[in-house]
């Protein structure tokens, strides 16, 4: 029902309205530009990086930023085994963005399906699903992720799966709450009377009308996933050396903090800027998608 009434014209108008409210938030627009730059850096890393991420210049250990020698320029200095920090950061952006994307897609798809089932069918299905979600939420997320990594073994992929498992209850709860709100509305009833089956009702009729809070939660999870995977890497449970993942780089740099500030400073700054840009965009998205929440 709902999906047949949208013409391309109204969709474009909706998009224009969305952009109007999003662009009102100056911070969000700047963040969008920064995020686009990071995305570009990640995609074009092999072209932009002056050196390979794993190439060791054994005669240029812990070189200060802006050092130049026969090997070329080291704009952000080199680490303890002579690798160019800027090149590693550029390649690291690939991991961080991929991590955020993967975790959100996995947590969102599992969470949405569980939330839809719980909200639509109710009864014991609802009770069982939501009780399990409550149990997952009872554990601090990073601790549970650590335990899952202990079970699955350390590594980037396992860290991402662990974090997705920990995040999906948020999506399940949001979807369930939205479905409960929509289920008794007239358009759903009309679709039901017209003979739509459960699958169609859940995924095509109800779900599109529950998307706004999910998109906002998705951006928040995107930035949190980057932080948590970096934290796991920092604790030695995420990506393993020599992967140029930002958290793992910080973990390797820890022993040099009082001798070489740049080894510690830049990977953390990269994490902070990326996460900040995504969170600012999230604020803008919330303003644009949920007008009654913030605009007053």
């Amino acid at each position: 029902m709902a999906d047949t009434t949208l013409t391309p014209g109204t969709r474009r108008a909706q998009l224009a309205e969305f952009w109007f409210y999003f662009s009102e938030n100056r911070g969000a627009v700047i963040a969008l530009v920064v995020f686009a730059l990071i995305l570009f850096a990640a995609i074009a890393a092999p072209l932009l990086a002056g050196h390979g991420p794993d190439v060791q210049f054994r005669d240029t250990l812990l070189a200060k930023p802006m050092t130049g020698n026969a090997h070329g320029h080291f704009w952000l200095g080199t680490d303890a085994i002579g690798r160019d920090i800027l090149s590693r950061l550029l390649f690291g952006a690939r991991y961080s963005l991929f991590v955020g994307f993967f975790v959100v897609v996995l947590a969102l798809s599992v969470g949405v399906i569980l939330g839809l089932l719980a909200g639509w069918f109710g009864g014991w299905i609802d009770t069982v699903i939501m009780r399990v979600m409550d149990v997952i939420l009872a554990f601090p997320s990073l601790l549970l992720a650590l335990v899952f990594v202990a079970i699955l073994g350390p590594g980037l992929i396992n860290a991402m799966i662990a974090i997705a498992i920990v995040y999906q209850p948020h999506f399940a709860r949001l979807t369930r709450a939205a479905v409960l709100g929509e289920r008794s509305k007239d358009y759903v009833m009309a679709a039901q009377v017209a003979g739509a089956g459960n699958m169609r009702l859940m995924f095509r009729t109800v779900l599109p009308n529950c998307l706004a809070p999910l998109i906002v939660q998705g951006t928040m999870s995107f930035s949190n996933a980057i932080l948590d995977v970096a934290a796991l890497g920092f604790l030695g449970m995420g990506a393993q050396p020599p992967t140029p993942e930002w958290g793992t780089m910080l973990s390797e740099a820890r022993e040099f903090i009082l001798r070489a500030w740049w080894v510690v400073t830049f990977p953390g700054l990269a994490i902070l800027i990326t996460v900040l840009a995504i969170n600012l965009m999230g604020d803008g998205l919330r303003d644009a998608l949920d007008p009654k929440l913030k605009r007053s």
């Binding site: 953390g268 969170n279 600012l280």
Partner: peptide, 16 residues
């Protein structure tokens, strides 16, 4: 917002 986006393990190292 900066505080909310902070990787606290890095923040701790900076303070040290």
């Amino acid at each position: 917002l900066v505080g909310y986006s902070m990787p606290i393990f890095w923040w701790g190292l900076l303070l040290i």
